[in-house]
């Protein structure tokens, strides 16, 4: 192939926040002839020159879309992490959808590149984890629940495709939690609770990636060739207690069991998202990934550190420090001025 640039790009999950943003970034690239967005529901925001095709990737009709449009690059973003949808349906969407999509990719002679959005949740979270995960590390305790398990299975199927179609450029991106003004995820809902319950006796290390950085990584991976698996995270680490102090949110440490009961009650009666087992484990043991491989490959660093991404999330939601601190400041100033 003379040119490495993608010409016809298919983006899955385009009606959701991340898919819409990535489609917008890609259509701004003059080197890309067509951007095709697929999803099961119509998009809520205008997509510009992106062509929307309403198709369920769990059905073989996705293969027809890929074949008829001559798609050469697939950006697979429709990993569902939310808990609002019943678990069985989420699994269906994540795993069966990926299988169908990959089957279609394997068939298509035009296919050149596959970019898959995965999650750092594939590393699990346990007290026996190394402090920092690199891409080669296996999880100490493999995730056994929820979207983390789905992501592990998705990556397995992607490896299978890679074996059968060694001519494809396959990029797997393991993102830590997205954060920013536009992100709505179980973690952002958790952080925005008026009083935040934490797990008694645990203070996890968290990492965030700003939405703009995540989209920039996805764009570069699509228009350039960077085969391999990469962790994506903002530099630095925040402890949960530190993050909640920065947010000015009061927090109540509760034993782990009562926290999951509380989450269950919240889900049933107050329409909240509850605490999924993988979120609960993250809130106990935390997780940190090493991004040096990504930085070396792209010669680029995320513009927002974990701290900066969190600060932007706070200002977007009008969260910050409460009043009593002003008293401390005045007292300190009075003492040093005298």
């Amino acid at each position: 192939m003379p040119t490495a640039a993608a010409r016809v790009v298919l983006v899955t999950g385009v009606s959701r926040f991340l898919g819409a943003r990535v489609a917008n970034a890609l259509q701004a690239d003059p080197g890309i002839e067509r951007v095709i967005g697929v999803d099961t529901v119509p998009p809520t925001t205008p997509l510009g020159r992106t062509e929307f095709v309403r198709v369920d990737i769990r059905t073989p009709s996705i293969a027809k879309v890929i074949a008829s449009a001559g798609v050469d690059t697939v950006v697979h973003l429709s990993l569902v992490t939310a808990q609002s949808v019943p678990r069985s349906k989420v699994k269906e969407l994540n795993v069966i959808g990926t299988m169908q999509l990959l089957a279609a990719c394997q068939r298509s002679p035009d296919m050149r590149k596959l970019v898959v959005r995965s999650s750092a949740a594939v590393y699990g979270a346990s007290p026996m984890d190394p402090a920092v995960f690199t891409e080669q590390d296996e999880p100490v305790e493999a995730p056994s629940h929820g979207y983390a398990k789905d992501a592990v299975e998705v990556e397995g199927y992607v490896r299978g495709l890679q074996r059968r179609r060694s001519d494809l450029t396959v990029t797997v991106l393991r993102f830590v939690n997205f954060l920013g003004p536009g992100v709505d995820s179980p973690l952002t809902r958790y952080l925005r609770m008026p009083v935040v319950p934490t797990v008694l006796g645990f203070d996890p290390r968290l990492q965030f990636v700003h939405e703009d950085d995540g989209i920039e990584v996805l764009r570069r991976m699509t228009v350039e060739d960077h085969p391999g698996t990469y962790n994506v995270a903002g530099d630095g680490v925040l402890l949960l207690s530190q993050a909640l102090r920065r947010a000015g949110r009061p927090f109540v440490p509760l034993p782990a069991q009562s926290l999951s009961v509380l989450g269950d009650l919240g889900r049933r009666f107050a329409g909240q998202t509850g605490f999924s087992p993988e979120l609960l484990r993250l809130l106990m043991y935390g997780r940190v990934v090493d991004t040096s491989r990504l930085v070396a490959e792209l010669s680029w660093r995320p513009k927002h550190s974990t701290e900066a991404a969190f600060a932007e999330f706070l200002s977007a939601h009008g969260m910050g420090h409460p009043g009593p601190l002003g008293l401390l400041d005045r007292l300190g100033a009075a003492l040093t001025r005298r």
């Binding site: 402090a131 920092v132 630095g236 530190q242 000015g248 601190l325």
Partner: peptide
């Protein structure tokens, strides 16, 4: 004040 507002740094090991 620094402790209450979380304005301190931790490394990747916590």
């Amino acid at each position: 004040r620094r402790r209450l507002t979380g304005e301190y740094e931790v490394d990747e090991f916590g």
